[in-house]
Design a protein around this nucleic acid. Structure first.
Length: 104
DNA sequence: CATATGACACTAT
DNA sequence: AATAGTGCCATAT
């Protein structure tokens, strides 16, 4: 029902901070919110994503630059990214390191 | 409390 | 570069 863990709440908060046209990784988000190394757990939280439209979860990718996953289908995620100016080729973000957004 | 799960990451091969 | 194995972490049951 309506139980959102503190962890998940922080994940959504951090995800909302990702600027349009930029991306962040599961690991950097985990580190930023204080759960160092919890990349996998971040993915799980986003998968549940109770705030689907309000949280730009499509801007979260793998540390390697690969797209990762998406609850509504990978093609949809890529479509959204491209729509923001983030090019994707062969399942990876183009100029990944340059598009990567580091939290401050 | 123990086991299983997954939108991950890293190292070795 | 591509694959496989191992480690990690918060949840769900």
């Amino acid at each position: 029902m309506n139980n959102i863990t503190s962890f998940a709440r922080q994940v959504y908060a951090a995800t909302k901070k990702i600027p349009r046209g930029r991306v962040a990784t599961y690991l950097t988000i985990a580190n930023y919110i204080g759960y160092k190394g919890a990349a996998r757990a971040v993915g799980n939280a986003l998968n549940k994503n109770p705030f689907a439209p309000s949280v730009p979860c499509h801007r979260v990718v793998k540390s390697s630059g690969e797209i990762g996953g998406f609850a509504f289908g990978l093609s949809e995620k890529i479509k959204r990214l491209k729509g923001e100016g983030v090019e994707v080729a062969k399942g990876k973000v183009v100029d990944f390191k340059r598009k990567l957004y580091l939290f401050k």
